[in-house]
Amino acid sequence: MDIKLKDFEGPLDLLLHLVSKYEVDIYDVPIVEVIEQYLAYIATLQAMRLEVAGDYMVMASQLMLIKSRKLLPKVAETAVEEDDPELELLSQIEEYRRFKVLSDELAAQHDKRAVYYSKPKEELIVEDAILKQDKSVMDLFLAFSKVISAKQEEVKNSHTVIEKDDYRIEDMMALLNSRLESESSVVLTGVFAGCQNLQEAITLFLAALELIKRQQVSVEQEDNFGRIILRKGA
């Protein structure tokens, strides 16, 4: 079963997505929280054996440096540093945001102008699922990143057990359907609570995506970074 997630256009696009959720000025966002969410997203891609582009990994190393500096105890400041990597990063995100706004405006003008001309038939590419309150499948994936990060830490701290890879997406779909038949809704974090290992959690997540694509399950998120709720039916 081939499940595809919408990719970001690059590491700055992912960071802008995370930063914009705080609905404050870019220079006022809690940068450590944003960095942790970015690193969790990259770790989840790796856990799912998905290829991670090199520029994402370069950005991850830069973010880890910024995070380490933010977490170190501050000593008496003797002089202002010439190069502030955090300020430089936020400036890059702000510059990227401006260019993206201009790009969106140009695309809108292009679409408006294009209605006056006959165009050849084009393949329409749409999102497999749209979450309520202007959410997207990527919001679901980012929420799953938090779950998988916690599960990785749990596995690392437990005894090493080699388990057979025999989880099937179809079985997990049936499991989710069964739970939603007996419960009006289930919380995403609660769904993964009983998973014994990463492979089971990943298979369960892919099953949830497939149910969303088939419109057998609807998804809600009450607020930014809030809990993800699954309900029966689209």
Score class of each variant (00 low, 15 high):
Leu15Cys: 09
Leu16Phe: 07
Leu16Gly: 01
His17Gly: 03
Val19Asp: 00
Lys21Gln: 12
Lys21Phe: 03
Tyr22Phe: 15
Glu23Ser: 13
Val24Trp: 01
Asp25Gln: 10
Ile26Tyr: 04
Tyr27Ile: 12
Asp28Trp: 00
Asp28Ser: 15
Pro30Phe: 01
Val32Asp: 09
Val34Phe: 06
Val34Ser: 02
Ile35Val: 14
Ile35Tyr: 12
Glu36Trp: 01
Glu36Thr: 13
Glu36Met: 06
Glu36Leu: 09
Leu39Gln: 13
Ala40Ile: 01
Ala40Asn: 14
Tyr41Thr: 00
Leu45Val: 01
Leu45Pro: 02
Leu45Tyr: 14
Ala47Gln: 07
Met48Gly: 07
Arg49Asn: 08
Leu50Thr: 06
Glu51Phe: 11
Val52Ala: 04
Ala53Arg: 09
Gly54Arg: 12
Asp55His: 12
Asp55Ala: 08
Tyr56Lys: 05
Tyr56His: 12
Met57Asn: 14
Met57Asp: 09
Ala60Ile: 05
Ala60His: 11
Leu63Ser: 03
Leu63Glu: 13
Ile66Cys: 08
Ser68Lys: 14
Arg69Pro: 04
Lys70Trp: 04
Lys70Cys: 10
Lys70Glu: 15
Leu71Pro: 02
Leu72Cys: 09
Pro73Phe: 07
Pro73Asp: 01
Lys74Leu: 10
Val75Ser: 14
Val75Gly: 15
Ala79Leu: 09
Asp83Ile: 14
Asp83Arg: 13
Asp83Phe: 15
Glu86Ser: 08
Glu86Cys: 02
Glu88Pro: 00
Leu89Pro: 03
Gln92Lys: 15
Gln92Pro: 02
Glu94Gly: 03
Glu94Phe: 07
Glu95Ala: 13
Glu95Asn: 15
Tyr96Asp: 02
Arg97His: 09
Arg98Asn: 14
Leu102Tyr: 13
Ser103Ile: 00
Ser103Gly: 10
Glu105His: 05
Gln109Trp: 04
Gln109Pro: 01
Lys112Thr: 13
Arg113Phe: 09
Val115Lys: 12
Tyr117Val: 13
Lys119Leu: 15
Lys119Glu: 15
Pro120Ile: 02
Lys121Arg: 13
Glu123Asn: 06
Leu124Met: 11
Ile125Trp: 03
Val126Cys: 10
Val126Ser: 14
Glu127Gly: 08
Glu127Asp: 11
Ala129His: 12
Ala129Val: 15
Ile130Ser: 04
Ile130Gly: 00
Leu131Ala: 10
Gln133Val: 07
Asp134Lys: 09
Ser136Cys: 10
Ser136Phe: 09
Val137Glu: 11
Met138Asp: 07
Asp139Glu: 00
Asp139Phe: 00
Leu140Val: 08
Leu140Glu: 03
Leu140Thr: 04
Leu140Gly: 06
Leu142Lys: 04
Leu142Tyr: 02
Ala143Phe: 00
Ser145Trp: 06
Ser145Cys: 05
Lys146Arg: 14
Lys146Glu: 10
Lys146Ser: 11
Val147Thr: 10
Ile148Tyr: 06
Ala150His: 08
Lys151Leu: 15
Lys151Ser: 02
